[in-house]
Every structure is written in structure tokens, then in C-alpha cells.
Nucleic acid binder design. Structure first.
Lengths: 189, 189
DNA sequence: GTGAGCATACCGACCGGTCGGTAGGGTGCC
DNA sequence: GGCACCCTACCGACCGGTCGGTATGCTCAC
């Protein structure tokens, strides 16, 4: 369980990274905004990179858990796809800053973290892929478009979401999630 | 018409920005890789930011021209959407580096450049939107999913393309473009 | 000669990270 | 009860190094 200070540092870092970018945000800027000192930051984190990695870890862990839970429900392919997309869109909308940082600064990860991350994402990707392929094999989905392209399209929207989604807009995350799921499922019929 | 030196600087900058990020690439690194000197770079560009802006300008100009040309053909809504998407996917696949930089480093643009950029992108977005709305009004497309969400999904994939598309993969840009267009049009029926 | 097209040497700002130190609360021996 | 001891959490001045940018001057085509 992270201390209040640690949590404040992470939250502030996410906010600043999202609005200015990782490199353009100095460590001094983070600690000033978080109302702590450099000593505190380096007490909890070994390096600036650790902040990034921690942000990613929290995000990926939560998304993977969501998907596993949904697949465990044993719904039909169509319902599974709808639930996965809806949960992904909603959780992404709730954490636009984290997702923005994630998409933008992925390449700054060190080699080890990058390998770990790739493995986790590959797993996510392939689990989703398997759901769609099964739907196609069972005849529930059309096979017009290859499953991997469908996955790419579906996950692509979500990653781009921070670019245009506004929490104070008139379209709620739930409504948006429904629309996106509708569209993807329409394309799969 | 840019001089050979200027072009070489820009090409090198795009390549380095794409692989390492804007901030992580120093001016010295660019000029060394481009086999020119700092003097040459600052002779053609006022600041490092100018490189970014120039990359964006070239990309957006070309995309807008493509879309205008296609709309000028006076095709049906379905055919227009297919052509726009195909041309966008193919041109993006041909310039993955530029697009990667574009998506990742957009936020580093200064205020003026950002305003100019937003206006151009908004125009692009709304032109595409109008095509789909017309198709819905005419009954050629379904109105199940709002047109703006469809546009977001379609453009989202393209922006994410640099994340996974590999020019040496077995899926050619043309084939991929066809699959994406198929899927989007299937969702619109 | 004169301006475009560079080359080279250099500057000041700033950055990530370090390190000696401190404040304060828990713990156990007497 | 009280004192020695330690440990976590944090402080902030400081350092080596790098970065974007500039000042100055050379060269050669016209």
C-alpha cells in the first residue's frame, strides 16, 4: 500500500506527463507541484523512469484483470466482445491521463521493462483475438475481415481516446462505450 | 523547393524523432547523423520546434489534398468512404515515421502552430463527418451509431497504425487498407 | 563585393541525481 | 520511567554534464 506522499507524487507526475510530456517535465517541477521535495521523491523512486513504469504497471494490471473477469463469465462471443470493449472504454475514459502518457511515452521504457510490458500486452491482444476467432469459427461473426485487423481497430480507438475524449463533454463514457461496441459488433455481423 | 541539405536534415530528424522521441534527440545528434553542422541546421530552421512543425505541415497538407481530390470525384457515400480510408491508410503506411512523430509529439507544438494545426485537422474531420452524415441521411448508411463516433474510430486506427504496422510484414498496405475499409463499411450498413 | 551557405567555438540555463544531515516515533534494556 | 539506539521518512544544497542556441568568420558563385 503506497503512502500518501508516494501517491501524491505519482498522481502529480501523471498529470504533468500527460499535459507536457515526460521529458519536458523536470523532476523539480513534479516535486514542486506535489508539494514535496526531491528527497522525498528519490526516497520512494529510484529514478524518474520508475514513475513511468509504475504508471504503466497499474494501468495494465487493471485492464488485464478486467478482461480475465469478463471472459470468466462464459458469455457468447458477441456479449464477451461487448463487455470487453465497454469495460475498456469506460476505464480508459476514467484514466485519460494515464492512457495518454502510456501511448505517448511507451518508447522511453528501458529494455527490461519493455520486454515485460510487451509480453503482457501480447497476452491481452491474443486473448481478445481468440474471442473473435472463436466467434468467427462458430459462425456467430462474419469472416469478411480477419480477426487481427478487427482487434487492431478496436484497440486503436481506445488508445486514441485521450486525444479527443473530454470528461466534461456531453457524451458520457457509458454512452460512448455502447456506441463503440455497437459499431464493432455491427462490423462483425 | 527545399535544398538537398534542408531535405536531408528533415529526413534525418523524422527518423530520429520516430525512433527516440523529440526531446531525447539532441540537435547535435541530428546534424551528426545528417552529416551537416549545427550552422547549417540553424541556417534553415529558426529553432528545433520548426523541424516538428515542418513535419506536421507536410503530412497534413498531403492528407488534405488527398481527401479533397477524392471528394471531388463525386462518388457515392460508400465509395467515397472507401477511397478516403484506403488512401489514408496507404499514405500513412508509407510514412509511418512522420505519423509516429505526429501522434506522439503533437503537444510540443507552440501555441500558434497548435492553433493552425487544430484548424486544419478540424476541417479534415468535419469533411469526413459530412460524407458519413450524408450517407446516413440518404439511407445508404445505417444510423445506429452516430457519425462522429464512426469518424473517431476510423481516424483512430490510422493514427495508431505506426504502433504495429511493419512495412516488411506479410500484410501489404493495400491489403490492410481494404480490410479496414471493409470493416468500417460493414459497420455502417 | 556581397550575400547565401555553411563551419566552429562557445555560452548560460537547466537537468537528473546525490549526499550529508535531521526530525520524530518505536523498541528494549536497566 | 527513562535513556540509548535505531530506523523510516524526508530535506535541500549541490554537482557534473548536456542541451538549445548564438556569434563570428570563411568561402565561393555571381
Amino acid at each position: 500500500m503506497p503512502s500518501a506522499t508516494e501517491q501524491k507524487i505519482l498522481d502529480t507526475a501523471v498529470r504533468l506527463f500527460a499535459s507536457q510530456g515526460y521529458d519536458a517535465t523536470s523532476v523539480q517541477e513534479i516535486v514542486t507541484a506535489a508539494e514535496v521535495t526531491k528527497g522525498a521523491l528519490y526516497h520512494y523512486f529510484r529514478a524518474k523512469d520508475d514513475l513511468l513504469f509504475e504508471i504503466y504497471r497499474l494501468l495494465i494490471t487493471s485492464q488485464s484483470a478486467d478482461m480475465d473477469r469478463i471472459i470468466g463469465l462464459g458469455l457468447s462471443a458477441g456479449e464477451t466482445v461487448r463487455e470487453i470493449l465497454a469495460s475498456l472504454v469506460i476505464s480508459t475514459a476514467e484514466r485519460v491521463d494515464e492512457t495518454a502518457v502510456f501511448v505517448r511515452e511507451l518508447h522511453r521504457l528501458g529494455e527490461d521493462s519493455m520486454t515485460e510490458f510487451r509480453a503482457e500486452r501480447r497476452r491481452y491482444h491474443e486473448t481478445f483475438l481468440a474471442v473473435i476467432e472463436k466467434g468467427q469459427a462458430d459462425g456467430e461473426f462474419s469472416s469478411l475481415v480477419p480477426a487481427d485487423t478487427v482487434v487492431r481497430i478496436a484497440l486503436g480507438v481506445v488508445n486514441q481516446l485521450p486525444m479527443w475524449f473530454r470528461p466534461d463533454g456531453q457524451k458520457t463514457p457509458g454512452r460512448l462505450a455502447g456506441e463503440i461496441a455497437d459499431f464493432v459488433l455491427a462490423g462483425l455481423r
